[in-house]
Simulated assay, not measured.
Amino acid sequence: MSYIPVSRRTIRRHRASERSTRRLVAALSAGAVVAWLLSVLLSAAVNVDGYVHDIDLVVHDLFLVVAFGAIILVDWHGFLWLIGRRTLGEIIRLDGAATPLIWGGLAGMLATGVFLSPHLENPMTDVKLAAVLVLSLNGIMLIPLMRRLARRPAKTALGDLSLGQRVHLMSCLVVSQLCWWTAIIIGFINAQS
């Protein structure tokens, strides 16, 4: 560990920032769980058929395209950063631009999912819903790391990160892709039946 001379005020500001990030993560996690529960509980109570269901399915799929498309774009550029073809600064900027699309798309999917009349007694549907909750929480758990990375120089490479940061980044990437693909595949299988 190297010593970097900083003022006490800077140290206090950094600690306050870390505490505020932990509070933000806790609040967002609680909000994600509540939104997910509300969507699942309302979907059990609401039953729509015919034209309204078909329109809702199209809107749900549009939100999926927006959110997952943004995820794929960020993950692809992240991969390019891993192999040295992009800078960290570019990834941070892209992530900032894509974040509203990702969370807006996810919120739209939760809202429109209420009217899709999911078969909650189907174990595959339960797996899909669990994957949606996990991917939401996974995205929130990435916030502290992204805030730390945003403070690093734009030319920072993967090897410049600590082992913990690399493990955090890679595990969040794997969990994200597994959950998104699980939810998408099960959703399309369920739509066929």
Results as ranks from 00 to 15, higher is better:
residue 151 R to E: 14
residue 178 L to R: 01
residue 114 V to L: 03
residue 24 L to C: 02
residue 18 E to S: 04
residue 102 I to F: 00
residue 25 V to G: 05
residue 137 L to G: 12
residue 22 R to W: 01
residue 167 V to N: 06
residue 51 Y to A: 11
residue 104 G to V: 03
residue 56 D to Y: 04
residue 138 N to S: 06
residue 84 G to E: 06
residue 161 L to D: 01
residue 43 S to V: 09
residue 112 T to H: 04
residue 181 W to D: 11
residue 73 L to W: 12
residue 142 L to A: 15
residue 51 Y to H: 13
residue 29 S to L: 08
residue 165 Q to Y: 07
residue 154 A to G: 10
residue 148 R to W: 09
residue 12 R to Q: 09
residue 190 N to L: 15
residue 151 R to T: 05
residue 141 M to L: 11
residue 73 L to S: 08
residue 34 V to G: 06
residue 10 T to Q: 15
residue 176 S to Q: 12
residue 124 M to S: 04
residue 97 A to V: 12
residue 169 L to Q: 09
residue 4 I to Y: 13
residue 111 A to N: 06
residue 90 E to W: 00
residue 62 L to K: 05
residue 82 L to I: 10
residue 119 H to L: 10
residue 24 L to W: 02
residue 187 G to A: 12
residue 90 E to D: 11
residue 27 A to L: 14
residue 187 G to H: 07
residue 169 L to M: 14
residue 77 H to Y: 12
residue 108 G to R: 01
residue 26 A to F: 02
residue 10 T to R: 13
residue 47 N to C: 10
residue 89 G to L: 01
residue 145 L to E: 06
residue 189 I to D: 14
residue 169 L to G: 06
residue 4 I to V: 14
residue 30 A to F: 15
residue 191 A to D: 08
residue 13 R to Q: 08
residue 112 T to N: 00
residue 112 T to G: 00
residue 50 G to M: 04
residue 37 L to W: 15
residue 119 H to Y: 03
residue 96 G to L: 02
residue 17 S to R: 11
residue 90 E to S: 09
residue 1 M to A: 05
residue 104 G to H: 02
residue 192 Q to D: 10
residue 92 I to C: 02
residue 48 V to S: 04
residue 40 V to F: 14
residue 151 R to M: 07
residue 74 V to F: 07
residue 159 G to D: 13
residue 4 I to H: 08
residue 84 G to T: 08
residue 143 I to F: 08
residue 21 T to L: 10
residue 44 A to P: 00
residue 158 L to D: 04
residue 185 I to T: 13
residue 71 I to F: 10
residue 101 L to T: 06
residue 68 F to G: 05
residue 20 S to H: 10
residue 173 L to F: 07
residue 119 H to M: 11
residue 18 E to K: 08
residue 79 F to E: 06
residue 79 F to D: 05
residue 97 A to Q: 11
residue 102 I to N: 02
residue 8 R to C: 02
residue 161 L to S: 05
residue 27 A to I: 12
residue 52 V to W: 13
residue 148 R to A: 07
residue 183 A to S: 14
residue 31 G to W: 15
residue 105 G to P: 01
residue 57 L to T: 04
residue 137 L to E: 09
residue 166 R to Q: 09
residue 149 L to G: 06
residue 168 H to S: 11
residue 190 N to C: 13
